[in-house]
Design a protein around this nucleic acid. Structure first.
Lengths: 211, 211
DNA sequence: ACGCAAACGGAACTCAAGTTCCCTTAACTC
DNA sequence: GAGTTAAGGGAACTTGAGTTCCGTTTGCGT
């Protein structure tokens, strides 16, 4: 099997000593091609040789640097965690939650991002390091949006001690549940309902941490 | 490729003309072995030849009757939808929701069921018929528990017109979100919070359908 | 009970995903 | 800007998942 892969914490594999120039270009091209393949065929239908071909790269390279689909996905997630999405600041908790719900809805229903998230999460269910990368990704996103909750506390809209992460999760969960499990429609009504339910629960103090 | 598979709606494949005796025993053994494999290796790590071996069945049989992992999983889901879980009736919405949250928590944290659900959902993300089977499964479960909500309406705890399915989904979603996406702890506190948030939102009329 | 064919099962076969080998290209250092 | 060597690439090779073939077992209608 392969040693020292990017996703894993320890060893320094190919691409770590000379990360510039060609190496960076190859990584970019391969990640993009891998994303395309995941969107089109889903996890399970991805052939690394095809990814290499579509990236205009030797398949030896793909096998050497990543080796398996989960490792490639973990690398993608690391990349995705970098690019941050700016949070809204509408002046009210309801407004901010509605904005975030709309953003998540937009992502999950997007023609490319929806299938991509499905495939990425499916991959993470079967591989520890990929799951860890996925959790890091969500931790980043939640941290970015936490200020909305803190501001609402300062404005006195919701009780002090409310856990921002719990609020964001409560908002996200129903949309992801629809995408992955129940298959129920993923529309504006669902987003609105998620935002409303979260806002009501937050005001009632359900998300106060040391309850 | 394979024609007439069990998961698909149309054709009558092997196992449909003489479903008794040996055929039934084979199906049972294969589904059990497939479940074990999914739990141990996750989707993607399942080898149909190994499933056949562990089921004590010729691998030709597995390939002929099912052919691919997704089709096998879809068949498993059809089986799982049959066996229903009795709903609670504690006399209050809070009690019923707490009971259901505990049941879901128990399932998702179970040593076998947790990984199994992960693998099944991962499979469904990449295959239409399997996704359809998964959605049917949840529709059945939701229908079973809907009476809790109807009773709460009758008792006057929550507004008339509340959509039972939305309530059940709102309860389930945070737990599934943790299992599949965020990786946050899946414990009693999470279940309690989900139940509380759902109850508060329901009382506030967030889940009234024709709002 | 009998007979037909549905379903099962062993074994040989195929072919493409993944590996290995070795040469070429081009980052990074001084 | 010259040398060192990390990283990439082409092509042959290996291996095991999936298929095919055909003989055997057994469910089911009569």
């Amino acid at each position: 099997m392969n040693e020292d892969t990017p996703g894993a914490g320890g060893g320094a594999g190919p691409g770590t000593v000379r990360p510039g120039g060609r190496t960076a270009r190859v990584r970019e091209a391969v990640l993009r091609a891998a994303g395309d393949a995941l969107v089109e065929r889903g996890f399970g239908g991805v052939d690394l040789a095809e990814v290499a071909r579509r990236a205009g790269v030797g398949k030896t390279t793909v096998y050497r640097r990543w080796g398996t689909v989960p490792v490639l996905v973990a690398d993608m997630l690391a990349e995705m965690a970098e690019s941050s999405q700016p949070r809204a600041d509408t002046g009210s908790l309801d407004g901010d939650l509605a904005a975030l719900a709309g953003l998540i809805l937009g992502t999950l229903t997007d023609e490319r991002q929806g299938p991509l998230f499905k495939a990425v999460i499916a991959t993470a269910t079967g591989d520890g390091p990929t799951a860890e990368a996925l959790h890091r990704f969500y931790r980043v996103r939640i941290t970015e949006w936490a200020p909305c909750v803190d501001l609402a506390v300062e404005r006195g809209e919701i009780p002090a001690g409310t856990d921002p992460a719990e609020v964001i999760r409560s908002l996200s969960a129903p949309l992801y549940y629809r995408l992955l499990a129940s298959g129920d429609p993923l529309d504006a009504a669902a987003a609105k309902r998620a935002a409303a339910a979260t806002a009501v629960a937050a005001r009632a103090g359900v998300f106060v941490s040391a309850a």
